[in-house]
């Protein structure tokens, strides 16, 4: 190598579009900087969609491999975050489909393995749930197809059209499921208040 490899600290300062340009040219360090920057939201989204921390990390890894391969197809390099989240959404849904095929006897979706800290603590279990705790519980009670729409909208910030593509349903179905999810959640949250 001539000169020093791209210093990670320096790359962490660069805007997305510049990192995308370098990564398209083959700079793996620039791609890793993008992964570090957007990894946490990808992981959070994949955890919500798959309901499993272990599966979520597999999904993030698959999504990053796909992103590296397809990076030159990204038309607007500034929009890389949304693009990574769309890939994360698709990979999560694929993961769920595969899991369903492999566990035909168990129709129930496994939920996040680790309950939130507050819930496992007997002392605070008696205390009133926080708003976000109550929302989590309400989300867990939603029908699976509504919850998927909700996550793709709220966590991945996808448009109705994009959600429709990810889930292979019509935009009108997305609109309906999302509305039903919100109505249910809003009612449950009013009761919680």
């Amino acid at each position: 190598m001539i000169g020093s490899p791209s210093a990670p600290d320096r790359l962490a300062l660069l805007p997305d579009a510049l990192l995308v340009g370098r990564a398209v040219d083959g700079d793996t360090a620039a791609f890793e900087a993008l992964a570090r920057r957007h990894g946490p939201v990808m992981r959070a989204s994949a955890r919500r969609l798959t309901g499993s921390s272990a599966d979520a990390d597999d999904v993030v890894q698959e999504a990053l491999v796909q992103a590296w391969k397809q990076l030159d197809t990204l038309r607007d390099p500034e929009a890389v975050r949304g693009w990574l989240l769309r890939i994360t959404g698709s990979r999560s849904i694929d993961h769920l489909r595969r899991r369903k095929l492999h566990t035909p006897l168990d129709g129930l979706e496994e939920r996040l393995e680790s309950p939130p800290a507050g819930r496992s603590n007997p002392e605070s279990a008696a205390v009133r749930m926080s708003g976000t705790e109550a929302l989590k519980a309400a989300l867990d009670r939603l029908p699976e197809e509504q919850r998927r729409c909700w996550v793709l909208r709220q966590f991945n910030d996808q448009s109705y059209e994009e959600i429709a593509q990810t889930l292979n349903i019509s935009a009108a179905s997305v609109r309906g499921r999302l509305a039903r999810a919100r109505i249910t959640l809003a009612r449950e949250m009013e009761e919680w208040r």
Partner: peptide, 25 residues
């Protein structure tokens, strides 16, 4: 509340400079 939950879960996902991301990379 939804935005609050999202922010909270992104924080809980950890930083991109943590071990989990290194192991994925």
């Amino acid at each position: 509340l939804e935005a609050e939950l999202r922010d909270q879960e992104i924080t809980e996902a950890g930083s991109g400079s943590d071990d989990w991301m290194q192991s994925i990379l």
